[in-house]
Design a protein around this nucleic acid. Structure first.
Lengths: 347, 347
DNA sequence: TGGAGAAGTGTGAGCGCTAACACAGACGAA
DNA sequence: TTCGTCTGTGTTAGCGCTCACACTTCTCCA
């Protein structure tokens, strides 16, 4: 990878000159065209190595009208879920020879989304993955016209746009059914903000599981995903633990819509002297790395973020390269992880 | 943003034709050149809007030899620290009109680093930020020759390369001094893997604080950043809590090198019936969002990842645009966050 | 031995933009 | 007036690559 002494990086013409062939032959070698004699190929390769030549992607993009660049738009990539999805996505794209550029937004209203799209479009991305967990993002997206394909992640399957999502509904059912199976009369629920599709689906799954089992359905308590909101709700829950308060069913198990809130709930219960799982069982959702070491280790639902990232890239590249395959909505299966926080209560 | 009826997106020539000027005038309008009459500018702008024209970045890059693209190489972007840094970095770059592409690696040996650099170089990045927390990454980086500037984050200040880092040493001192100040005879330390520069600096800061205070220096116990390793080490610590075992000083306070391990330590202590902070005070490092709700809420050191990201982009763009400013090493100050896990023991 | 077809290579014209220069007209100073 | 200078605009030549085609050699079979 020797750097040429001159100021400018070597061009294809330089390589051609050194190898004693035309620039077109160099191009053929570079793109693995079959009709090149072995000796010629070797000579060109030698020249390339000698000069430390590297194809100029801008010129290539200009000539081919293909940038081989993908965009990603996401909210709050500092959290475990989006960050993991992003990472899986980037790896999958790189494998396919694409460059990916992510735009990380604080909020995802229509303006911010449009702006992010413009930014990416300016750079000539051939497609975009939008991690659209919030309803407003989905709505904004639905109205947006783009000159390239768009794929959603966690955007629900109601959209015309193709998308990948974890089966949140199933995950919530699994947790709820597990809690009922270990002997709880019913399961309370700390929900995520209902403008989040994931939160909504988890709530729906929980409700369906209870109804199917003929269990009473307590009111859902709504948090904002943060440990603090979990803590506040946990304090309310602690007050009615084990008791039958008013019209509501007895509280002995709680399904919390994410692990961070579950941490807050656990803390509030413990401060109030309510034991987990002896008095109240608690389950979460996400399986963040810390969940295994919560007090007590948390039963939760694991999401395969890597798989979600890979699947969305596949969907997107299918569309860009106009492959025949036309799946539009992929679902990734969740996995129930049972830990001490829902251990069977001593009968 | 009307999409033209023809297959191809409009070019500068199309805009020029519609506006009745030359393509060069369009170019001047687009790049804000002053010498364009107001009326001409308006006419061109109207044509741009009408056609939904957008500058082709590949052609622009080819003509200017500037791609306005930056690369980022990082390990394990799924963790809170790197993910936050990345996010801050991306925002800062976008503000400056740059596109950023991140490559997320699993391990950062020389091979992987070279490959990532090649990938980014192929796409013509004008500079790269490498988040190099591990010694081997720094070593590999030192040997690498690149045709563009490189800036490190958390790479220590020993390198010839410019870089940004949090003052890990100071952070560790602050925690340790705080623990001594609340009355502990000495402070034990659960360290991160010593091939990580951050871990090393935290250990050094802890040791220096103890030595300066004339406190005995217990052996450092080395973990791998994971909650599990913290748990294992916590079990060992629980065994000697409050006791003076062999030659080692009394254990009443522990400084853990990151919050995740601290969670494991807390759990191990609590399982062994050791109370925090009554029997043993525990402090962490990072201030992850969960730390405030640990059992008990964790005293820790907050890092301003956003600031780190912004600073590194500034350093990089300074170099790319060859500005006069030549700071080479920036340090971001840490902030001690005191919570219940180190509350003053009842004397 | 000839000629069709394949294999291997070269030529020229763009891709859509910016940089450099050319040039016309307006304006103030000598 | 006459020049210089500034303003506003157009013209031309690339940037480094690929695509389409032309051309030269082979190969093989009638």
């Amino acid at each position: 990878m020797r750097q040429s002494a001159t100021d400018r990086p070597p061009t294809m013409a330089d390589v051609a000159r050194v190898a004693g062939v035309s620039h077109q032959t160099v191009s053929r070698v570079l793109s693995g065209h079959p009709n090149v004699r072995k000796a010629t190929r070797a000579g060109v390769q030698r020249a390339i190595d000698e000069l430390g030549y590297r194809r100029n992607s801008a010129a290539r993009a200009l000539a081919t009208r293909r940038t081989r660049t993908l965009g990603v738009i996401a909210v709050n990539t500092t959290f475990h879920g989006p960050a993991s999805t992003l990472s899986g996505l980037e790896g999958a794209a790189r494998e396919q020879g694409y460059l990916v550029s992510a735009v990380s937004l604080r909020t995802i209203d229509k303006d911010a989304l449009t702006q992010a799209m413009t930014h990416l479009a300016t750079w000539g991305v051939e497609g975009v993955v939008v991690i659209t967990s919030q309803r407003q993002a989905v709505d904004a997206l639905a109205e947006l016209r783009t000159p390239f394909p768009v794929v959603t992640v966690e955007g629900g399957h109601s959209l015309a746009l193709p998308g990948v999502a974890l089966d949140q509904y199933l995950g919530a059912r699994l947790v709820t059914e597990h809690l009922l199976a270990v002997g709880h009369e019913t399961v309370w629920h700390v929900a995520g903000p209902q403008d989040w599709l994931e939160a909504e689906a988890r709530t729906a799954g929980w409700r369906a599981a209870l109804e199917d089992a003929g269990a009473p359905v307590p009111p859902a308590l709504v948090g904002d995903w943060s440990p603090l909101s979990g803590f506040r709700i946990g304090q309310q829950l602690a007050g009615r633990a084990g008791r039958r308060s008013g019209p509501d069913p007895r509280l002995s198990a709680v399904f919390v819509a994410n692990d961070q809130m579950a941490l807050g709930v656990l803390r509030a219960l413990s401060e109030a002297g309510v034991r987990t799982p002896a008095d109240v069982a608690v389950a979460g959702f996400d399986d963040i790395p810390e969940a295994e070491f919560f007090p007590p280790p948390l039963t939760t639902v694991r999401q395969d973020f890597g798989a979600i990232g890979r699947a969305s890239i596949r969907l997107l590249i299918d569309r860009i390269e106009e492959r025949a395959v036309r799946e539009t909505h992929l679902t990734v299966a969740p996995q129930l992880i049972v830990r001490a926080s829902t251990a069977r209560p001593i009968a």
